[in-house]
């Protein structure tokens, strides 16, 4: 059983995940960020692999990615940072990156490195389901890696059911038709969408992301789903307050 699966078997409500871009604000902040998030009660952590052309990301994550790349971050460095944390960090880590990074690195090599670092879950926003089924599913399975799929307000019921069937991680419920970025409150329309998904009785754990930014949006999302992911708001926080203040960010949300 993967770390994420055992987490989900123990906890089904108010799951909090936090996303950060590896290499931001500083190249070697990875360890401190992960340990701070873990010790303050974050349930699982998404590690973003900075990319030059992050199509699904808004200005905040774009900016953190450029800074990380300027800091010299690359996949080899990330993997060596994560490997060093393998034994001390118990919180499930999820890697989020774009397909071209993995293609260029070598798909098998990437999977082997994930395995070496104890990474069992990946999110690749520009890897569509059909390409996954035709070219990646077998490979990922061989290395014990689960792929997370996204659904949006526009995803058809039929497609959601299919995703529910082939996924063995969680379903990433994109909160609205938009790129990543901190937004204000959750609208009536979004709640209706969450309710529609909730009523589908899917087998997968449902985690909301894109636009979840504070206690209030987190709580609203958790009324309908198993948990939520905070990304851009955390990156903005790191930019303003710095790594040392992370405990206050997390407690503010889960208090």
């Amino acid at each position: 059983m993967s770390k994420l699966t055992s987490l989900f078997s123990e906890k089904q409500h108010n799951l909090l995940s936090v996303f950060f871009t590896a290499g931001f604000p500083k190249l070697n902040d990875t360890e401190q960020i992960i340990k701070n998030l873990e010790s303050n009660g974050v349930d699982f952590i998404e590690v973003g692999l900075p990319y030059s052309d992050p199509l699904a990301d808004g200005p905040t994550i774009q900016h953190s990615s450029s800074v990380a790349l300027e800091n010299g971050m690359n996949l080899d460095i990330i993997f060596s940072q994560l490997e060093a944390l393998k034994d001390s960090v118990k919180t499930p880590l999820v890697l989020m990156g774009y397909l071209n990074q993995i293609l260029k690195y070598g798909e098998s090599k990437f999977c082997q490195k994930c395995k070496d670092c104890g990474i069992e879950t990946v999110i690749i926003p520009d890897l569509p389901m059909i390409e996954y089924e035709n070219h990646y599913q077998q490979l990922f399975t061989n290395y014990g890696i689960s792929n997370v799929f996204l659904i949006t307000p526009q995803t058809s019921e039929e497609r959601i059911r299919k995703i529910d069937k082939i996924t063995n991680a969680f379903i990433y419920v994109v909160a609205s038709a938009s790129i990543t970025g901190a937004k204000g409150e959750i609208s009536e329309k979004q709640m209706a969408y969450f309710e529609r998904i909730q009523k589908m009785n899917l087998k997968s754990t449902l985690i909301v992301g894109f636009g979840i930014s504070n206690k209030s949006t987190f709580n609203t999302a958790c009324k309908y789903m198993n948990g939520a992911i905070i990304g851009s708001a955390f990156i903005n926080f790191l930019q303003e307050k710095g790594v040392a203040e992370i405990p206050s960010f997390v407690t503010e949300i889960i208090e």
Partner: peptide, 8 residues
């Protein structure tokens, strides 16, 4: 190779 958001 598009994010699910653009699939429809």
């Amino acid at each position: 190779f598009i994010p699910e958001l653009l699939y429809p």
